[in-house]
Every structure is written in structure tokens, then in C-alpha cells.
Design a protein around this nucleic acid. Structure first.
Length: 116
DNA sequence: AGCGTGACCGTAT
DNA sequence: TATACGGCCACGC
């Protein structure tokens, strides 16, 4: 069980049509300063089919320039297909930001406590 | 085993 | 409004 595993677990929970920021993932993983690590974790994403890394954007709601699946335009397209709207290249975070509910927070906590 | 680096974020100048 | 920097984790040399 590593920090990456926690990050992947949380990213997998982001629902269809929603996005999360790196900092948000980091905070859920237990440390708000892990945002950079979140970026690296997604960079070496071992399972892109099950880990929706395209639903993670920076705090401005902007996709990464180094997005590997055809560039940031590709990421924008994927999100738009899910109904996420962009304003001047940025996601409207106040509308589309994922906010985990009580059950999801409990699941995250349980997973993190599972490492022993 | 040490060092630099990276899909970031917040703070300081 | 820009630019600079420290913090955090895993990976490759």
C-alpha cells in the first residue's frame, strides 16, 4: 500500500460528468501538499482504462498540457462528452467539481485505514 | 543509497 | 499581474 494506491483509489471514485483538482485528490489522500505527487501518479497511470485521469484538472479547471492521450484538446473532448462545460478553456469548477458524499468519504477512510 | 525531476498548489515579493 | 520557491512521493540513474 503506497500513496499512489490511495491516489488511484480516489481518482477511480470520481463519477461520470464530474471533475476533481489535483489539490482536492491530495487532500482526500490525507495531505494537501501531495498535489504534485498526484500529477506524477497520473503520469505513470498503470491502468488508464479504470483510472479516469482525464477527470482530474488543475485548480483553475484547466487540463494538463502534457496530457498523454492526444493533448489537452483530447482531454477536453472526453469531458465534454460527459456533459462537462468549458468556459474559455476552463471547467466551471463551481458547477462540476466532485464533492464526495458521506459514504464515499467513509469508503476512502476505510481504504486508507486498511493498510495497517 | 543519494540526487534530480515531474500532469500542482499556496504564499511571498 | 507576473515570477520564484518550498513541500510532498516514486522512479531512474
Amino acid at each position: 500500500m503506497t500513496t499512489f494506491d490511495r491516489i488511484y483509489f480516489i481518482v477511480r471514485m470520481i463519477p461520470y460528468g464530474r471533475v476533481a483538482s489535483y489539490g482536492q485528490i491530495a487532500a482526500l489522500a490525507g495531505n494537501p501538499r501531495l498535489s504534485r505527487v498526484v500529477g506524477y501518479a497520473l503520469h505513470v497511470n498503470p491502468d488508464p482504462e479504470n483510472i479516469p485521469c482525464f477527470r482530474v484538472v488543475n485548480r483553475e479547471g484547466r487540463p494538463s498540457r502534457a496530457f498523454a492521450f492526444g493533448g489537452e484538446n483530447r482531454q477536453i473532448s472526453l469531458l465534454e462528452l460527459e456533459g462537462v462545460k468549458f468556459i474559455d478553456g476552463c471547467v466551471d469548477m463551481s458547477s462540476f467539481r466532485w464533492q464526495p458524499g458521506t459514504d464515499e468519504l467513509a469508503a476512502i477512510r476505510a481504504f486508507m485505514a486498511d493498510e495497517g
